[in-house]
Design a protein around this nucleic acid. Structure first.
Lengths: 353, 353
DNA sequence: CTGAAAGCGCTTACAG
DNA sequence: CTGAAAGCGCTTACAG
């Protein structure tokens, strides 16, 4: 059906080997011969068969990227950074949606292994399920042993990796704890004492680290860690909305609401708006990530900037090998507190309860 | 290095053909034999080589998706819809970023052809460059002739396709003109007469269709189409910001500013805010797309909803063949005017100039 | 600089 | 139900 390298060879009056050499440009070929081959390629509209080539050369120019949700800018931006680096390194990035499902994560890894992907980047916080982590770790160890570069982006290093694989697995992570701690400290410095917190989904590293930072700031200030002030979300706007409702019900006296990401913070803002509570005069609100829209929220959202694109680019470079392995295989990118309009001083309140 | 099907066969004491049959499950194999093979597969941690399989079976389970920018939710949401449908159909979606470059569009199409992708979906408005369109069309015709399903999503049908290829190329498009017309008509009904318009990048179908709808509404109302009221953007927030500055400079008396997408509308809002102009009391603002954040803008953005996810799903289904071809190969998805807070009645103004 | 030949790891008629 | 063998379309030592 499709024309093959042999067709081109026949037309150019040379051997298949020569055509291959012209195509790959990795071997000397006489200029005249080269031209004849190139003409034949054009005339026949020849396109090399990537599978045959990958099989014969046992190489692959694919880089797999696993994301929880590509419609979410958090992942979109990271993936875009990875893809740029991959393209610069000559690799074709394959972005796979896991929907945050451990099951699918494993399925896609297997699929990528099948295609003998040259590299794979896992993005976003990982689930803290020991069994699943062991499964992923052994899959990654296997792939690594077969020469696939593996990079973790936006999650902590995996302890479950084989001793053999561990040194070759790079990790790009964010200073989530530090950022969360700085954010809550900022609120406390502004006089807030009853601060509600909306977490991400349970059992995810990102969720835990951000919450730990928040708690650390409370502890630093000698404030109690009241479980009634913590409500669980799942990083979606709707869950932020629901959690804010719940927190307001439990503790009408909160003066600040912190969400573990910007998307949920928008849901929180919506609740306050509907209740007729002013931001930040009545209640301060803060998010995390600094997604593009957070600047345009009403009012602009105080948040913690996470360098998603850079992280993606670094991860991509590690994956294609255009960046040397960092010491210990670990690259920790700093986060930065961004003070904007949604946070203000704690309002004066009559001491109820 | 990696274990092969032959290794599995040896271990299970059967022929490679039998292993292949067990793996593919498309041929009767004795239960006992099957079990022995399955055990060997597990013990050896065998993973089939996708390239060898694709070569031998001359099939591919890849679906390529071309997007302008995957960090942009407009594309992220569409791609996510495509990927869901692809996964449901057993295809692995490959999302490629073209950065809106015709050059890269072609490069990626060639790459996908190499990999013998089973289907390809081109998303977003296309560039109106006759030469480039001919090149893309001939590439798509070629791929289509080789059995690759091609689907256009979010752009108009291509007239440049080969007569042979045309009937098999599906198109999912949006009623951009109608949406834009309804939006501007809404503004006019509220008394706006001097309406600034921020376009997308020149030479893109989406840009042109939305602008045409806007102009149609002006014409419907007998209003002049003043070129000074139109400024060019490129769909980015920054360009919306700059265009708003320009429009305000040219025509300080505008009472409404319409942006060709929500992202630019945010830039427009930022300018008004900085100038101390109230939205919508002093100037109304509207966008297009209804991206997730538009609801949370300050104030919530009046816009035109474009069913991105559905479009992606439909395109994905057409690409995997789980949805029959629509009549004429064309599926036009409706758009819907969403009236929110950023648009209000035109302010009373002293008749300057 | 060029070619003949073996091999990459599968699938699939063809036989039995 | 199972196997031997040819073939998918390339690449790459090996010779010359």
């Amino acid at each position: 059906m499709a024309t093959t390298l042999a067709d081109v060879a026949a037309r150019a009056g040379v051997s298949p080997a020569t055509v291959s050499r012209v195509l790959n440009g990795n071997y000397p070929v006489a200029a005249a011969t080269r031209r004849r081959v190139e003409r034949a390629v054009d005339e026949l509209n020849y396109v090399i068969n990537g599978h045959a080539r990958a099989l014969a050369a046992s190489t692959s120019d694919m880089l797999g990227v696993l994301v929880n949700d590509m419609a979410d800018p958090f992942f979109g931006v990271m993936a875009s950074g990875i893809q740029s680096a991959a393209a610069a390194g000559g690799l074709l990035a394959i972005v796979c949606n896991t929907d945050g499902s451990p099951q699918q994560e494993l399925t896609y890894l297997k699929l990528l292994q099948r295609q003998r992907a040259g590299a794979v980047v896992l993005t976003g916080g990982s689930v803290e399920d020991p069994e699943h982590n062991r499964a992923v770790a052994s899959q990654l160890s296997l792939m690594s042993a077969q020469g696939c570069r593996v990079v973790l982006c936006g999650r902590p290093p995996m302890r479950e990796l084989d001793a053999a694989a561990a040194p070759s697995v790079a990790t790009v992570t964010f200073a989530n704890r530090e950022g969360a701690r700085a954010l809550t400290a900022h609120l406390i410095a502004l006089g807030h004492r009853r601060i509600g917190y909306v977490t991400g989904p349970a059992e995810r590293t990102t969720t835990r680290h951000r919450l730990e930072g928040h708690r650390q700031a409370l502890a630093d200030a000698g404030l109690p860690d009241d479980p009634r002030l913590v409500a669980a979300g799942d990083y979606s706007r709707a869950s932020g909305y629901d959690a804010a409702l719940e927190l307001l019900r439990r503790e009408p006296g909160v003066t600040a609401l912190v969400a573990a990401n910007d998307t949920m913070a928008l849901g929180v803002c919506a609740v306050l708006r509907e209740r007729g509570l002013r931001i930040p005069e009545d209640v301060s609100v803060a998010g995390f990530d600094d997604l593009p829209f957070s600047l345009d929220a009403a009012p602009s959202l105080t948040t913690v900037r996470v360098p998603l694109r850079q992280a993606g680019e670094q991860a991509g470079k590690l994956a294609v090998g255009s960046r040397p392995m960092p010491p210990g295989g670990l690259l920790t990118l700093p986060t930065e507190l961004l003070v904007r309009r949604s946070v203000g001083p704690a309002p004066e309140r009559s001491t109820e309860d």
